[in-house]
């Protein structure tokens, strides 16, 4: 029996007042696939991610994660289905130190989270947390409160938290924004490698076409709330109409 795709979106519609933010969007992401979403600001890319994570509810249409309908579910219920998200503006806890973010995310993904006598720094997750810190080169900042670390490091921490959940599908909203151009390709190389090694499907919204060309299996182009083109990076990025409308 054929396994259900990681994500299926069918005929999604959503408007804010008189603005049609998402118009008849249908998209499928296969298991293990890395899909890039490109488009101008306000094209509805982040709105689509918000619908896939339960923050916004589509007016019409269906969204399924591994065959399970998620429309109407809360973000935490969708997260428990194996969907993790990193944000365009890092959603982290300014007063807390870097390593505790990863300990918390790691604990959230494991049984025993609600045990009041289980320490945050549990031996079960300690190794994974250290690996993530090293993987994202955050180890030197491990004990620092995140309010004092650079924006790029915050971004990495946000992505690392999403990865600590050991997701089946990860949604990354501009993962390289705020990261220096020297670190950008290195970060994506390691991130995509880690995702592929774990068989994690990914959707990432990106404005850097070099990153898109290098790391995406497929690219979806968004224009004014609708999908304009979907295809391989070579085909899509060389399409004259895409160049005219988006690039």
């Amino acid at each position: 029996m054929k396994a259900a795709p990681a994500l299926e979106a069918e005929h999604l519609f959503l408007s804010f007042g008189g603005v049609q933010a998402v118009r008849d969007v249908s998209l499928t992401v296969a298991t293990g696939e890395v899909l890039a979403i490109i488009g101008q600001n306000g094209a509805g890319k982040s709105t689509f991610l918000n619908m896939c994570t339960g923050y916004l509810r589509p007016e019409r249409g269906a969204i399924r994660i591994a065959g399970c309908s998620i429309v109407g579910l809360k973000p935490r219920a969708i997260a428990r289905l194996g969907v993790a998200r990193a944000f365009q503006h890092p959603q982290i806890f300014p007063q807390r130190c870097v390593i505790d973010h990863l300990r918390f995310a790691s604990a959230a993904a494991r049984p025993g989270f609600w045990n009041p006598f289980r320490p945050l720094n549990s031996p079960q997750s300690a190794q994974d947390v250290l690996q993530l810190l090293a993987f994202f080169a955050l180890d030197k900042l491990a004990d620092q409160p995140v309010r004092g670390i650079p924006e790029g490091a915050r971004k990495l921490l946000d992505v690392a938290m999403a990865l600590a959940l050991e997701p089946k599908l990860i949604l990354l909203d501009e993962p390289t924004s705020g990261v220096s151009s020297a670190e950008k390709l290195g970060l994506m190389t390691r991130l995509v490698h880690a995702l592929r090694a774990r068989g994690v499907s990914a959707i990432f919204v990106e404005h850097d076409m070099d990153v898109v060309a290098r790391f995406a299996d497929r690219v979806a182009v968004w224009v004014e709330g609708a999908i304009f083109r979907v295809g391989s990076p070579e085909d899509v990025l060389s399409d004259p109409e895409v160049k005219e409308h988006v690039l």
Binding site: Y55, R76, R96, F104, A108, F113, P119, L120
Partner: peptide, 27 residues
């Protein structure tokens, strides 16, 4: 012990960014 558990840590994190806690699958 409770304050040093994941749930105790999460309690303090509610003040900072509650929505992120939900996105981590925790109520």
């Amino acid at each position: 012990c409770y304050r040093r558990s994941p749930a105790g840590w999460g309690l303090g994190a509610i003040e900072d960014r509650e929505i992120r806690i939900e996105y981590l699958g925790v109520s």
